[in-house]
Amino acid sequence: MSEIQRPLPKPTPETQHFWDGCREGELRLQRCTRCANTWFPPRPFCPACACREVEIYTASGKARLHSYVISHRGHPGFGKEPYAIAVVKLEEGPQMMSNVVGCPQTPEALLLDMPLEVTFEQQTKDESIFIPLFKPVEG
């Protein structure tokens, strides 16, 4: 269970597969069966060609740190220490907002373009919501 009291997402019919994937340890993206475009956040059509024939697949979970801030006046549920709010660039192309875990929340530790990998954190006792976070790739 997360020690952080995050504002939790409420899945909708168009995003349910994504949150189901997080619960099952998979980062699920969508791609177009016609033009092979891939995108995030979820929607039931291709934003490049408007095709409704959409395929759900499991992403590699690999990403790079694209940009971030270190919030010093954060959400009360995150405690008193400053924490990074990051945008990561997935290996497949799309960008996601996330937090970087498993490393100090400092400019010295958080280097742009550093390799990251996804990890999923349980948010609720009933195991209904897991959130995708990213941690530095070891080694």
Binding site: R6, P7, P9, K10, Y68, V69, G77, M97, S98, N99
Partner: peptide
């Protein structure tokens, strides 16, 4: 609410700046 709020954004100072 689904894809940004869970990461602790608290309005413009922690979003516009990213």
């Amino acid at each position: 609410g689904q894809f940004e709020a869970p990461y602790g954004v608290t309005g413009a100072p922690s979003m516009f700046t990213i």
